[in-house]
Amino acid sequence: MNYQGDRTTGFASPVGDNIEGTIDLMSTALDLRQPSRYPVRVEGDALLGRAIRHGDILVVDSAVAPRAGVVVVASVGDELRVCELTQRAGEWWLRSSSPRASPVQVDDDTDVAIWAVATGLVRTDV
């Protein structure tokens, strides 16, 4: 079963050298073999505004540099949180989706650290 649109038996296929193979998500957007990629299960619907739902699998990458506006997984004290990252006066802050919760500054001294930056999402129950 090696037919890729090229090796026809009757008329020569016009595709020539343009065979490109199927898109392989596993070696691109979802490549968990990269040493800095980790899968994370999202709990709760707080990030529905970013279209991230309870039960989603986030692919996060600890080698990606943080940027304002990205979704990150961060360790805050004893727990891991999924939230938005913002920048203010050169400092990184975690912003809650709830307007009532005040932002938390990323700071080693207060045990708040960016764990990895979200780079992809897998949803198995659509």
Binding site: R41, V42, I52, L58, L80, R81, C83
Partner: peptide, 15 residues
């Protein structure tokens, strides 16, 4: 087994 079993991956609460 956080990185080898899909049922066991790390969980994070959305905030």
């Amino acid at each position: 087994r956080y990185t080898t079993r899909l049922e066991e991956i790390v969980k994070a609460r959305s905030w």
